[in-house]
């Protein structure tokens, strides 16, 4: 009897410890670091983005991720438009399906700085997209601790998204899309969704059954996922998921932001203090619960088929 009680206690304690990995304090640390004025708006090719990359690398190191394809760096370096650019990639190898990959991504670049004016000149990009990178880092730590990923997980911070999805485009050319089971991209999860607290929306909802898998997994939780309400904004094509989706990968973007009402979008006022840490943290937890069956190999979302004449911008 006592043994049973101890076992129950142990189970309770350990599951509690797991769920506590993702919390507002951790999220705040990532957010305030990445959106700090020192990072000067993280423009691709700038000194500021170098600092951001270093922070992401140091976190991947601390969490204990492996490097991609046995490179000696977390950076995937390349040049484009006369700039030297780098995605930052950390790997958590799958336990039984190591050659099946799930990508968890967010872009870490932003717009840099304004010139020739007084006042606040820095585009901190706290919501866009320090919030998404915070999610990638928190999920990496969560899955490393949980040790339940039957499939391999690639945690990717994409560069030069704001210049036209350059980082994710390059990444897409380096992989075999057939080995990529799903793309979980995260953008702007720092403001409460138009559907209320504890809700998010997913771009390209009806292009694969990815979204319905997430909804099913969230059924027991008090969080819900809705189809992207801003269809006219064509957001499915405007974030890094598009670079993978065009290769057939069911790759979608999670977001919470009220795009039609967000006065800080692409403004210098996009700072950590305008964000809702509860929304960020709850959304990351929901992504962990929602994508679990894909990560542990039980569900495989249907592939995306693009129409031939479908534009990508």
């Amino acid at each position: 009897m006592i043994k049973k009680l101890l076992l129950i206690l142990l189970v309770c304690f350990s599951s509690k410890a797991h769920s506590q990995i993702i919390n507002e304090k951790l999220v705040e640390k990532h957010l305030t670091t990445l959106a700090d004025d020192q990072m000067e708006g993280r423009k691709a090719g700038s000194q500021g983005i170098e600092m951001a990359a270093k922070y992401i690398e140091s976190e991947f190191e601390r969490i204990g991720l492996d490097k991609f394809e046995s490179q000696n760096s977390f950076r995937q370096s390349f040049s484009s438009k006369d700039m030297s650019l780098f995605n930052v990639i950390g790997v958590l190898e799958g336990k039984s399906k190591a050659d099946e990959y799930v990508i968890i991504s967010a872009h870490y670049d932003h717009l840099g700085m304004k010139t020739g004016e007084k006042g606040d000149l820095i585009f901190n990009g706290a919501n866009d997209n320090a919030s998404g990178v915070s999610a990638v880092l928190a999920l990496a730590e969560h899955y490393k601790t949980q040790n339940i990923n039957e499939r391999s997980l690639l945690f990717v911070a994409f560069t030069a998204e704001e210049m036209g999805l350059i980082g994710s485009n390059y990444f897409g050319k380096q992989i075999n899309p057939e080995n990529i089971i799903a793309g979980i991209n995260i953008e702007m999860i720092g403001k409460e969704s138009p559907f209320g607290p504890k809700t998010a929306w997913l771009t390209g909802f009806d292009r694969s059954d990815f979204g319905q898998i997430i909804q099913k997994n969230l059924e027991e939780s008090d969080y819900s996922l809705y189809p992207d309400p801003y269809v006219n904004f064509r957001l499915f094509f405007r974030s890094d998921n598009a670079s993978l989706a065009r290769l057939g990968v069911p790759a979608h973007t999670f977001s919470t932001s009220p795009m039609d009402k967000d006065l800080d979008y692409h403004k210098v006022s996009d700072e950590t203090k305008t964000l809702d840490l509860f929304t960020v943290s709850e959304t990351i937890k929901a992504i962990a619960i929602g994508t679990l069956s894909i990560v542990n190999g039980n569900d495989t979302p249907s592939r995306i088929v693009m129409k031939k004449d479908e534009p990508f911008k």
């Binding site: 909802f205 909804q215 059924e219 189809p227 269809v231």
Partner: peptide, 12 residues
């Protein structure tokens, strides 16, 4: 009917 199912059907 969950609200999300209702919106799925509506938007699709």
């Amino acid at each position: 009917m969950p609200f999300y199912s209702f919106l799925n059907v509506l938007l699709q």
